[in-house]
Every structure is written in C-alpha cells, then in structure tokens.
C-alpha cells in the first residue's frame, strides 16, 4: 500500500480548489437546498410562494388509509401496507424500480462480464470487435428510442420476428408428431403492463458497455504468472476462473455492483422517453415520479424534494450494506 506524502496545509489548496469550489457550490448547496425545500410546499413559480409545512410532505408520502379494505384487484403489495396508500403512485414507482433493479443489476453484471471474457482474448482484429461491442454505449443518444420502438414492435419488430420463426419451427416439428398447438399471440412488450419490464431490462442490458470496459481492464491486469503457476499445478479452465480470475477482478465486480445498483435505482432516461407508451404506469420509475412531481402540473417542488431525500437515504443504506458485505468476498492484493 502506498502512503501519502506529508505536506504543508496550504499546498493542497492550489490543487484541490477546483473540486472544493465545484462541490460546495454546485453539489452541496443544491443538496442542502433540496433538504430545506422538502419541508415546504412550492409550485416552483414564485419565490414568494414558498411555505413551511414541516414534515407534512414526508407524512403524506407514507400515509396509508388502513380503514379501507384492500380489494382483490389491487396490487398485492398493498396488503403488506395494511391498507390503501394515499400516494399510490409512490408505492407503484418503488415497486417498479425494485423489480427493475433486482433483475437488471445481476443480469447486467453477468452480461458485462461475459462480454469482457469474450473480448479478453489475444486474437487478430479484436479491437474491431471491442469497438462494435462498445457501439451501443456510444449510440445511446438521439435515435435510440426510435430504435427500440422498432426492435420491440410487437408486429414488425425484430425480437418478435425472431420469436415467430422459433414458434413456427416448433409448430412444424410438433405437427410432424401429430400434436396440435394453440395459435401464438406475440408479446406486446413495452405496450403491455406485463411485457414492459422485461423489455426495459433488455434495453438496459444493451447499454452495458461501460461496465464491460471496466471488467475488461481488470481482466487484462490479472498477472499472467498466476495462470502459469496454476497451469503447472494442473488446474483446469473452470478452476482457474474460480480461483484466480474471480478473486483478482473482485474489486471491479464490487465497483460495477455499486455503480449498477445506484444507476438502476436512479434510472431516468429510459422511463422518461418511454413514458407515453407505457400502460397502467408500468414504467413509472422512482426518478420519473420525482421528475413528474417537480415539473409537471401540478408542480410540487417540496414534495419532490422529500422524495429525493428518501431516495438518498435508501441509496446510502444500500451502498453501505454492499460495502460492508464486500469485506467477505473482495480480494485485495497485499504487498
């Protein structure tokens, strides 16, 4: 481990002043302002209309009307709350975001690691492949939404077209053996409340270029002599992966886990551009709900600030828990 050089207290100011100014003015100030605003009601139009409301925003967010019975058609998680929540959209957005994070993060990590392993081979032309694999990340700008509209289009989209071929093949083969199969109705993906989450998880998977790069860098930095030594001991490929590769890249896994988790919880771009297609608020994610509360009419900046602070606390706890458990499985080189 390296240690830092001692220095006079003034020297570092010269180096750190950009960050100090930036963080205090552009980060801490807004964050503190949002904390203060979370105890007020404000429509964002006139500074004079800010009113102190105490903890009313927070109480309103969590309030549950337990006098009314939860019906059979209501969301199942209302039963856990023991009544009908006052802000049903809040719970809906928490539910949606949780489902998304639970599936998207592990799948994303696995996909990124898989791609990185694939690209970590000394082959000719590998750099061209790396560029192709990274392209989605670069492309995730203007036209992406149109692109996904087409891919997930139930009717002419490539995904359903592919599924259709599979189904036709299946019907044909089972027809050979005299089985009758019922007609297949293609999934409506983004347009249906059931299909939109898998679709969004897939979309998220496609933008894994950043995590892939970090894994790739970690893989490239595994000392080759470790593998050579294992080779001498007669280890097979699986053993090498489990006993050398995984421990060696575990810090990268930890980093991607935290980044992926906080990214999933805060994901905004995809639900924002897709909001007009989603049915039944199926893609109402947490940050989208915050954004709508703050900017769409009726604009409630105070309420949105309270939502943001709830998110902060959750994110902080999640990260702290991940870091605490990481001591068990993250391997640090000791020199």
């Amino acid at each position: 481990m390296s240690t830092a050089q001692t220095t006079s207290t003034g020297t570092f100011l010269k180096f750190l002043s950009p960050w100090l100014v930036g963080t205090s003015v552009l980060v801490l100030l807004p964050v503190i302002a949002s904390l203060v605003l979370s105890f007020t009601s404000w429509d964002g139009l006139s500074i004079h209309d800010i009113h102190w409301v105490g903890s009313a925003n927070y109480r309103q967010i969590f309030e549950v009307d337990s006098s009314r019975e939860v019906g059979p058609n209501d969301p199942w998680y209302w039963r856990l709350l023991g009544g009908i929540p006052k802000d049903a959209q809040f719970y809906k957005s928490v539910y949606n975001t949780t489902i998304f994070a639970v599936f998207a993060v592990p799948l994303g990590l696995a996909a990124a690691l898989g791609l990185a392993l694939l690209l970590n081979q000394p082959l000719r032309g590998i750099s061209a492949f790396r560029t192709i694999y990274y392209l989605p990340y670069i492309l995730s700008g203007v036209g992406t939404i149109l692109l996904w509209q087409w891919l997930f289009n139930p009717d002419v989209g490539l995904i359903n077209l592919f599924l259709k071929y599979l189904v036709t093949l299946w019907t044909w083969t089972s027809g050979l053996f005299g089985h009758q199969t019922s007609p297949w109705s293609p999934p409506a993906w983004l347009y249906s409340p059931q299909g939109c989450k898998p679709a969004v998880i897939l979309m998220n998977l496609w933008g894994m270029g950043g995590a892939m790069l970090i894994f790739l860098a970690a893989l490239q930095n595994v000392p080759p002599h470790l593998y050579a030594a294992a080779q001498l001991d007669g280890a097979n490929r699986r053993q090498k992966f489990r006993c050398i590769t995984l421990p060696q890249i575990s810090p990268a896994i930890l980093f991607n886990l935290i980044a992926g988790l906080s990214g999933a919880v805060r994901s905004f771009k995809i639900p924002y551009v897709l909001q007009h297609w989603s049915q039944n608020d199926g893609l109402l994610f947490y940050m989208l709900y915050v954004y709508r509360s703050a900017f769409e009419s009726p604009a409630r900046i105070g309420y949105a600030s309270a939502l943001i602070w709830i998110l902060f606390v959750v994110l902080f706890v999640l990260t702290a828990l991940t870091l605490l458990t990481s001591r068990r499985w993250v391997h640090y080189e000791v020199r």
């Binding site: 509209q149 289009n153 139930p154 009717d155 409506a188 983004l190 347009y191 249906s192 297609w277």
Partner: peptide, 18 residues
C-alpha cells in the same frame, strides 16, 4: 387493440398500410 400495433406511431402505421 393495445399491443397490436404497440408503439408503432400512427404516421408509420398509416404509411405502411397497417
């Protein structure tokens, strides 16, 4: 019905004869 044309926009649905 919701889902049949899905997120195809009406301009495209009309242009392509859907």
């Amino acid at each position: 019905p919701p889902g049949a044309l899905g997120q195809m926009r009406q301009d495209i649905a009309f242009l392509t004869g859907r």
